[in-house]
């Protein structure tokens, strides 16, 4: 049963990724803008252009190019970046940890903040506090992540400069990373200056990404909590003498979290999409920032590599959401 599920999952993932690959491959080639023209100085002869095109294989038909590229991918070779002249796989995987750390931190901030507000809102239901929280989360939700980024830069970078507004870590810190997970590695190797500097750089972009999601979680989870708090088992818990807060945390939260989780899964993929612009804003050296450069330079192999990695990331997230669903809901564990 489990094996069959995993197998079905793997096959659908493969099909999805293949579909994404086809679409991206074709799109970047039919879209206007020629990577070769970007590389050559003005006044290059048609002969130069033809030569360079042939060098990168752009003279062949799209179908032929795709087959060649796919053949490489299956052998683990995602091509070479045109602008950076390095293997795409190396470049992309080198940037992945930065984006993973950033979006994971944003997710935890969103869950913590949104969850807390939801619990307080449910605890204070039908009071002015609830209305106030609803209005606040509505307002927070209506401001997009990049605007939050600008607001934070203004507040904590300019008016009260306590956080770093650009990059991923203080360049003066000397530390020889073996992985690109700065926080993780800093923690493991006990270098708290590394961790603190990374956090100081990550806090604003992570908050910018987290706030809209936090507001969404706050609203949905509170609504679900209020419904669960009308259920017979929560009434019974009150009769048994548990305080309202205790009823919310022990009896209601897990039940209310189930429908919220589905939304968090979907929204988290949007959050990762948001890293593209937010990373750019904070000059954060992650995948999203690289994606923008790749698009500007028409670096076709790099674009393909990044998009494919994003697609793989999304499927992994969906898988994790489904798994946590099973963990939270005992009814899904059997039969």
């Amino acid at each position: 049963m489990l094996l069959k599920n995993v197998l079905v999952r793997l096959i659908t993932t493969a099909i999805t990724l293949f579909g994404v690959a086809v679409v991206v491959f074709v799109l970047v080639r039919v879209a206007p803008g020629n990577p070769i023209a970007m590389m050559l100085p003005p006044g290059a002869t048609p002969e130069d252009i033809a030569n360079l095109s042939a060098l990168y294989g752009f003279d062949k038909s799209i179908f032929e190019q795709f087959v060649i590229w796919l053949g490489g991918v299956l052998r683990g070779d995602f091509g070479t970046s045109i602008t950076l002249r390095q293997p795409v796989a190396e470049l992309v995987l080198g940037r992945l940890p930065a984006t993973l750390e950033l979006s994971t931190m944003a997710l935890f901030i969103a869950l913590g903040l949104g969850g807390t507000v939801a619990v307080i809102g449910a605890r204070k239901r039908d009071t002015a506090t609830e209305v106030g929280l609803d209005l606040t989360s509505g307002a927070v939700l209506s401001i997009p992540d990049f605007l939050w980024g600008l607001i934070f830069v203004l507040l904590f970078g300019v008016l009260w400069p306590i956080l770093s507004i650009s990059g991923r870590i203080d360049p003066r810190i000397e530390f020889d990373f073996t992985t690109n997970f700065y926080i993780f590695e800093g923690l493991i190797r006990g270098r708290f200056d590394v961790v603190m500097s990374t956090l100081s750089h990550m806090l604003m972009p992570a908050m910018s990404l987290a706030l809209p999601l936090a507001a969404m979680i706050a609203q949905l989870l509170k609504q679900n909590l209020k419904e669960v708090l009308n259920q017979d088992y929560t009434t019974l818990a009150r009769v048994r003498g548990f305080s309202e807060t205790s009823v919310i945390l022990r009896e209601a939260l897990r039940n209310a979290a189930l429908p919220t989780l589905a939304l968090v899964g979907v929204q988290f993929t949007f959050l990762i999409g948001g890293t593209v612009i937010v990373e750019r804003l904070f000059a954060f050296e992650g995948l999203g920032n690289m994606a923008i450069d790749a698009v500007i330079n028409r670096d076709l192999p790099l674009i393909q590599g990044i998009v494919l990695l994003f697609a793989a990331l999304f499927t992994v997230i969906n898988l994790l959401v489904d798994l946590s669903y099973t963990l939270l809901n005992p009814r899904l564990r059997h039969g």
């Binding site: 017979d232 088992y233 809901n329 005992p330």
Partner: peptide, 24 residues
């Protein structure tokens, strides 16, 4: 009041299908 009532009394609810927490 909540504590006194909880210590002295108990409830047998109407619908056993909804009176137990499904995830515990």
């Amino acid at each position: 009041r909540r504590s006194i009532v909880a210590k002295m009394s108990a409830l047998i609810p109407q619908d056993p299908l909804t009176a137990l927490n499904p995830v515990r």
